[in-house]
Write a protein that binds this DNA or RNA. Structure first.
Lengths: 234, 234
DNA sequence: TGCATTATTGACCATTTGGTCAGGATGTAC
DNA sequence: GTACATCCTGACCAAATGGTCAATAATGCA
């Protein structure tokens, strides 16, 4: 229960740590098996953890999902916690990849739209990862406290500062930028996390590309207009 | 794993089923102990299930949270599944309570604002219940499929029809009403489900009443304006 | 008071949990 | 071939899981 660990367990990646450089070249040279199996296990684990949360997921279930014996999963991943942390880190890396910096001189409409779109893409391209993240936060973010209060907070505040300047320049309404970021987050994240609800209510098997495009446009339109941002050239 | 059950396990409430009317009046007349204990257990279970999901929650943890031996929890609740279903039903009842019908002749601004506000209130007054619901959906809604594809879908479609008529009458932009409902849902639900993230990023211990009022006003403002709904009198 | 009902709980059970380990299989380099 | 690495996995373990049950304690009412 004292799993308050955070993500300082840095991923050493599959390339094994430095030292022993001589012996390294030999038996591990190809390492193709390892890579394939690790990929398979990570994918399976992501699905299971996303569905059942950290405690609810069992290594047995993950192993079956990956089509391997449980021992093999442990051979590659060490233990449950390490596997889980590694998945969180991978998801955060994906997340960081689309968080390029913005400047006050950028066009608010373009930036907001790009933000909505890229977040929407992430929810769609990695729904299991999104849900894994959601489950972690739902459970009180025992592994992510540090990240939330550190990196992520900084990122939000940097953006917020720029939004504020845009408001001062009259490029958008003086809304609270933090609530705005949360609005965009929640609205996009929803289509991954609550997929079951969305599909159930709209009577679909899955969301088509066209659906996603429609939703993206809807969100851009409503949120931009709602914040007094005029699309294309301010 | 085949927990695809839905919520037809109707709660028979604590009043015991009909039959045996004669014996009933006696030993159970007060039933005050039962009521108190059930309340305590339900509250504890809601917290634990919300945090860890159905599979991740243990009866032991629930019992400890309620300050009772595990046997006592089972004495009152029968089994884990029944307890869980009962909590889901309770949450849905709360949810239904604020879903009064609306008419085409109502003021769009008032209706939307009331919707946002009441949904926000629910997230705030019952955060654990909201999270419990979220965890259930996140896991693929194994117990709620029927509800989503039935009651809830009907409710959404009824509202959507009205939104569409408003749009025809020029009272709001012709946005897709279903996406709009999801937008409001996600934006409000976010403050219960992602509470840990919100608090972490904004560096707060909890959201004050003033915070919630600000957020509510922000959401109303942006969403109404974003849909072309003019506040007060159309 | 006596009696029926409800309330309480520790002992117990089969199963599942995360994790270890020894021993064998497989592959690569010489 | 031999040597040495990685890869694989069944057997095993202590602890925790959901759940049963019988014995006991409170309680309310005649």
């Amino acid at each position: 229960m004292t799993q308050r660990n955070s993500v300082q367990t840095k991923v050493v990646s599959s390339k094994v740590v430095s030292s022993k450089v001589a012996t390294r070249e030999r038996g591990e040279a190809n390492g193709v098996t390892r890579e394939r199996n690790e990929r398979e296990i990570l994918a399976a684990a992501e699905r299971i953890f996303a569905r059942h949360g950290y405690r609810g997921a069992s290594l047995q279930a993950i192993a079956e999902e990956a089509g391997l014996p449980k021992s093999n999963v442990l051979y590659y991943m060490g233990n449950k916690r390490g596997l889980y942390v590694r998945l969180l880190e991978r998801m955060m890396a994906r997340w960081n990849a689309l968080l390029d910096d913005i400047s006050v001189d950028d066009d608010p409409a373009e930036v907001l739209e790009a933000f909505i779109r890229s977040k929407m893409d992430l929810s769609r391209s990695h729904p299991e990862g999104s849900r894994l993240f959601a489950a972690e936060i739902l459970g009180g973010a025992p592994f992510l406290q540090e990240y939330l209060r550190g990196e992520l907070r900084d990122w939000v505040e940097a953006r917020a500062a720029i939004f504020r300047q845009w408001a001062e320049r009259g490029l958008m309404d003086p809304v609270d930028p933090v609530w705005l970021i949360f609005l965009i987050w929640s609205a996009t994240q929803h289509y991954a996390d609550f997929e079951a609800q969305v599909l159930g209510i709209t009577d679909r098997e899955e969301l088509s590309d066209a659906d996603v495009e429609n939703i993206t446009r809807f969100l851009s339109q409503v949120i931009l207009k709602g914040c007094g941002v005029t699309p294309r050239q301010a």
